[in-house]
Design a binder for these strands. Structure first.
Lengths: 120, 120
DNA sequence: GCACCATACCTTGCGGTGCAAAGTACGCGC
DNA sequence: GCGCGTACTTTGCACCGCAAGGTATGGTGC
């Protein structure tokens, strides 16, 4: 990962990985994900989430299935694939490095550039 | 700013605020900013930074001035405006809330949803 | 003087994303 | 039947990151 492509991915939306993380816990349907994100103070409208789910499915990160029972309206449930799990794992390792980089620029006095001090 | 539109902004680039933060310390010119970001493990090419600087200037967050001396090549130096300072301050308060929200979804067991526990 | 390279800035064009808005379908209450 | 809430889908717009290419300028070697 090092220098190149990871950081580029990080700048693009974090919403994809977040949806994967929500699906890791259990299967969910579209509106449920929208509500869950809203609860967590992350505004995300249907117009964002539904196309995102389609993209994730095209990318093989999730798979979906219509679930019909008599109690509820028909819902399309999404489930994580092994590909999706791998992507989520990759993001979990890249995300802290990204926030650290941002924090180090945002708080100049901080000097939380560890890895100096090799030799007092 | 509070809840709504800030979060929306956060999802779009963090690069703008980062550039503002770099300019807070002192005036800088374009290529210098590109190099500074690269040093900090944040890939950012000229094709990203120059248009960004133009946008920031159009938005009144920075102002620029050609500096010509005999030692160096002519350079356009960018300086923070009071508007830019305000934007940077706003981002500094929004950023931690955003990362906390992302972290809370990313690490499910964590339960770092404070503000429950109102009543055991 | 001239070719060459590095610096510095700017522009174009593409692809991806977030989002509002509008549209479809269905079941429930009255 | 009518309205309302749920659930999914689609369209269209605007913005952003970025690679790639283009211009101008100054120093170095010969």
């Amino acid at each position: 990962m090092a220098t190149g492509p990871a950081a580029s991915q990080l700048r693009k939306g974090v919403l994809g990985p977040l949806v994967l993380a929500l699906l890791e816990e259990r299967e969910r349907y579209g509106l449920e994900i929208v509500r869950e994100l809203s609860t967590r103070d992350l505004v995300a409208s249907e117009g964002t989430v539904y196309p995102l789910l389609t993209r994730l499915q095209d990318a093989g990160a999730v798979e979906s299935e219509w679930v019909v029972n008599e109690r509820d309206r028909p819902r399309r449930f999404y489930r994580l694939t092994s590909t999706g799990r791998a992507e989520l794992a990759a993001f979990r390792t890249d995300w802290p490095a990204f926030t650290r980089a941002v924090d180090s620029i945002l708080t100049p006095g901080d000097d939380s550039d560890q890895q100096r001090e090799v030799h007092p």
